[in-house]
Simulated assay, not measured.
Amino acid sequence: MPLSTQEEEVAEALEKITASLENLQLSQEEMQANLEVIEVIEEELQQQSEHLAVESQFYYELFQFAPDAYLLTNPQGVILKANRAAATLFNVLHSFLIGKPLALFVPETERSVFRSKLNQLSLVDSVQEWETVMCPRGGQPFDASLMVAPIRNTSGPLVSLQLSIRDVTKYKQVNLQPQSVTARQLLPLAAAIETPHSLDGLRVLFVDDEADAREFITVVLEQHGISVTAVASVAEALSVLERSRPDVIISDIRMPDEDGYALIQKVRAIEAEKGWHIPTAALTAYLAEDRAKALKAGFQSHLHKLAEPTELVAMVAQLAGRR
């Protein structure tokens, strides 16, 4: 018996309701699956958060308990973060350092130069090495070695500075004494060279922007009869090479304007033009300097400034082919 119009409408409505219930059931199942995925993601995020917390604590303690003074400043040198060693170095409470300009711990006679160097960091990207005089609160001034790393954002502007500061007063007292004292101390170095006069007349060109380093290296080498021409820049070194050919070139790596890598490139160009071959050595006070990088750049040897004077003399002798 055919269905009436009303019965057909009811049947059609029931079909729609059944379809809706099925869709609702499917949606619930999908929602449940999504909830399970969210729970897994939340668990992973929780684990990552705990891991990051542990890592953050590790690096915080590494920063705080490092033996050297470490600071984070804004581009103007105002201290944003400091570790305990920095507070000890400057003889103040840790909380006192935050918000203070680092120039506060530089003697007034040195502040204009210090600020000028800070301003120059907006033009460079590499780590800069400085030497300056710093003064702790209520204490005596000391010679400080600074490693300054400029930090930029993705668009380029300078946003902060990372600094490590080390008191090098004792090192300089031991290794950079006046020439008359140093000469007496260097007399035993003759034993490092098999023939006492084997280096007489050897000519060395030494390039370093630090006057104390130039004086010290000159004294060390001249005690063995080596003639030393010490200059403060790459430009001065090239001027010397226009007039004469040294037997060995020793150069600091990190210098303002043009560094040791720029020098070695220009020396190799001069050699190609004049048919020369001048043995070269890189000398640096930067503990993290990559020896492999210096050798790859063209230097035949690499030595740290903290090395014993005997090592320096032996290196020059080896480069010059003398014993």
Rank of each mutant, 00 (worst) to 15 (best):
P2I: 11
L3I: 11
L3W: 15
E7T: 13
E8C: 10
E12C: 06
E12A: 13
E12W: 10
S20W: 15
S20F: 15
L21K: 15
Q25I: 05
M31H: 08
Q32R: 07
V37A: 12
I41V: 15
E44I: 14
Q47A: 12
Q48T: 03
S49F: 07
E50P: 01
V54N: 12
S56R: 15
Q57D: 13
F58Y: 15
E61D: 13
Q64M: 15
A69H: 09
Y70L: 13
T73P: 08
P75W: 06
Q76L: 06
Q76R: 09
L80P: 00
K81R: 08
K81D: 07
R84K: 14
R84I: 12
F90K: 00
F90P: 00
L93A: 13
H94G: 01
F96H: 10
L97G: 02
L97I: 04
G99C: 08
G99N: 05
F105W: 03
P107K: 12
E108G: 03
L118G: 01
L121M: 09
V124P: 03
S126N: 14
S126D: 14
V127C: 14
V127R: 13
W130S: 02
E131I: 11
T132P: 07
T132N: 09
C135R: 14
G139K: 04
P141A: 02
L146R: 01
A149Y: 07
R152A: 03
N153A: 05
L163K: 00
N175S: 09
N175H: 15
Q177A: 15
V181N: 07
R184S: 09
R184K: 12
R184W: 06
L187V: 12
P188L: 01
A191F: 09
I193Q: 00
P196A: 07
D200A: 01
D200L: 04
V204R: 01
L205K: 01
L205Y: 01
F206S: 00
D208F: 09
A211W: 06
E215L: 14
T218Y: 09
H224R: 03
G225H: 08
G225D: 09
I226K: 07
S227Q: 11
V228D: 05
T229P: 05
V231C: 09
A232L: 05
E236K: 06
L238Q: 05
L241R: 08
S244H: 13
S244P: 10
I249P: 00
R254Q: 10
M255N: 02
D257L: 04
G260T: 06
Y261S: 04
A262C: 07
V267P: 00
I270S: 03
E271R: 10
A272E: 12
A272S: 14
E273T: 05
I278F: 11
I278L: 08
A282Q: 06
A285T: 08
A285I: 03
Y286H: 14
Y286M: 03
A288S: 13
F299Y: 11
F299G: 04
Q300E: 05
Q300H: 13
H304I: 01
H304L: 08
A307M: 07
E308Q: 06
P309I: 05
T310A: 08
E311Y: 00
L312V: 04
A314F: 01
V316P: 02
Q318H: 04
G321D: 10
G321S: 06
